[in-house]
Every structure is written in C-alpha cells, then in structure tokens.
Design a protein around this nucleic acid. Structure first.
Lengths: 176, 176
DNA sequence: TAGTGCATGTAATGCGTTACATGATTTC
DNA sequence: GAAATCATGTAACGCATTACATGCACTA
C-alpha cells in the first residue's frame, strides 16, 4: 500500500511502544499535532491497512468487557519507518492567518496595523505557555522528542521577540 | 455567502490593485503561498461568488481576441476586508515533515539522527536563498508586505542557527 | 447516578489540489 | 514554426475533519 500522510505518525508512535488507536490519537494530540495532525478517521483505517500489509501486528487486549486492540510494530514495520526516516521528501504546509493579516495590513490605519503585530506577539506568548506547561510535565522524553518540544518553545520565544522588535522599528519609522 | 479560506487572499490582493484571476494566482505564487496557498480551483469560483455578493466588480478587459476579466474591490468589498483584518480568528495549520522526522529520530543510530538535523539546516538555507532572491527583486513593496517577507527571511535565518546550535549541543552531550 | 474518560468505528461533508481542456499571443 | 506564457475554467480525485453512534468502566 502506498504510504499516506498518517503512515509515519502511526509507525513512529508504535516504535515508542505498543498502543491502541485511541492511544495513538491521544499521543498525537499531546505531541505531533502542533506540526502533524491526525484524526480518528485516518488512524483506524490506517491501522487496518498496516496490519494487512504486515507492518503492524494487532492483538485483542480488552479491559474487562470493554474491547481494546493493541498494535505493535513488526520487523518490516520498523524497516518501513527507518526507510521513511532516511527518505528525502520534504512536505511543508503552512497556513498562518496572522501572517496573512499582517501581509494585508497596509489597508488599515497605521495604529490598527500595528495592533495586528501586537496580537501576533500575544499569540506567541500564549503558545509559549501551552508548550512550557507540557515541558513541565513529569517524566523525561527521548532526546529527539525533547528536541522538537524545545524547538516549539524556542520558536515561539523567537517569534515573540521578533514582533516586539518590529513594533519598535515601525513605531520609530512612523515618527521620522 | 460564508467566507472561505480563499476569500481574504482574493480581497486583499484586489485591495492592492485590480487584477484578473490569473494575476491573482500569479501574485499568490510569488507571495502568500509560503503561508497561505490558493489554487485556480478556488480562485475562479470565488471571484464569481464575490461578484454575485457585490464585494468585487468584474469588467471584461480582453487583450485582442484573448478573453480577460479584471476585478476590482467595491466599497463593500473593502469593508469586508477590513472586518476580516480586525477579526480574531487565528487559523494555524502547520505540517512539517522534517520536524516529524526529528521527532521520531530516536529510532535511528545517533549519527543518522544528527544527519536529519543537518538536513533541516540545509532546508532553511535553501529557503533563505529563495526569499533573499525575492527580496532582491526591484521595486519596493508596501510596508507590511515587506514586513512579512522580512519575517520569512528572519525565521529561516533563526532556524538555520537553531539547528547549528542544537547539533553542537547534541554532539557535546554524546561525548559526555 | 450522573458525568467523564476509555475505546472503536464510520458516514457525510467539505476542501483543495491536480490535471486536463481550450485557445490566443508573444518570444525566440 | 515551436515553445513559453497568458488566460479561463472545471471535473475528478483524494484527503481530512466533523460528527455521530455505541457502549463499558470508573469516580465523585
């Protein structure tokens, strides 16, 4: 089966340990969703496809009468993950409404345009709060999982400062 | 009509001057596509919707026998743009395969994992080249158009340095 | 016992890209 | 005369989200 956008997340998360579809969705919402989202509508069908292809192995692991199916990576699954990790595809999709507003902000009176920059700065600050709260959670993550969290924190901190700096620059420019 | 993702781009670009659908697509590909893409399949139907709603006015402006329809913003179109500019929606969608790779890089031998960071750094460098070439193009842009281009350049420059710095840190850590 | 969380799954919907069709004009 | 660019437009396809349905288990 041709891999889809959700394939690497499922394989990658299963590489960190066996999980159910529900668990995978929960892990995504805690971690990769900031740069790679996935929904139930993708995860469950994908797990069945991957099992049919022998990349993951599912096993029923009910809690009492409540059904539950836990998947783990097979050897070919691990190999497929490593191949993807070493691959060269570079999908980047970015949609940022705040940047789009800034881009068209010349249509506004100067003060309102600058307020958009301030709003963007606050957005970074709020994001920082969220990520720092995740960072403060107990338990240590593998090195590269932690590295990516650090990226999120550093990026938003940079973005916050960038907005501040540009605000100063543009206010100076206005006066001159 | 309820506004869609493509509505603000069309209104915003028309605020910078009258354009055809083709022109809009070309402008998007030169500018907003980095953070807000749009395709013909969105732009042409949207122009007809906006005209039906009175937000833009189209006029046939053929080049010889070759058909061409140029649109300009009406007063209510400008008002709709300003409303969106002052709105509070904050759509952010981000899909970055390079970050996803890093996130799962613990599954690789250390050296190969670090190579992923190096690859990300090169990605930033290439992006920088593209944006700096755009920046070097003759003609000056409105302040905030220029600000967003500056953001792209500064962000990639920051990202490049971040990768470099983390590479050093992780290599040091390995030795200890 | 009511509410929340665990757990699986799918149908409907919406959105956006890709690819194609058509044809004129300009440029080399 | 060929190739690239200008210009409009749509149909098909794939992808992803949303929303819903179902029901068990724990906890306050």
């Amino acid at each position: 089966m041709a891999p889809t956008a959700v394939t690497p997340v499922v394989l990658g998360l299963l590489a960190l340990g066996p999980r159910s579809g529900y668990d995978i969705k929960a892990a995504v919402d805690r971690s990769t969703r900031f740069f790679w989202a996935a929904s139930y509508g993708q995860i469950y069908p994908e797990l069945r496809r991957l099992e049919a292809d022998g990349l993951v192995a599912g096993e029923d692991a009910p809690n009492g009468a409540r059904g539950r199916r836990v998947y783990e990576l097979t050897d070919s699954g691990r190999k497929a993950l490593e191949e993807w990790l070493l691959g060269t595809s570079v999908t980047i999709e970015y949609r940022d409404e705040s940047l789009l507003r800034l881009f068209f902000a010349d249509a506004l009176p100067r003060e309102q345009a600058l307020a958009l920059l301030e709003a963007r700065q606050r957005g970074h600050e709020q994001y920082l709060d969220v990520l720092r709260a995740i960072d403060a959670l107990p338990g240590r993550d593998p090195d590269f999982v932690d590295l990516v969290l650090r990226w999120g924190i550093d990026f938003n901190d940079w973005g916050r400062q960038w907005c501040e700096h540009q605000l100063q620059r543009l206010r100076r420019k206005k006066r001159s």
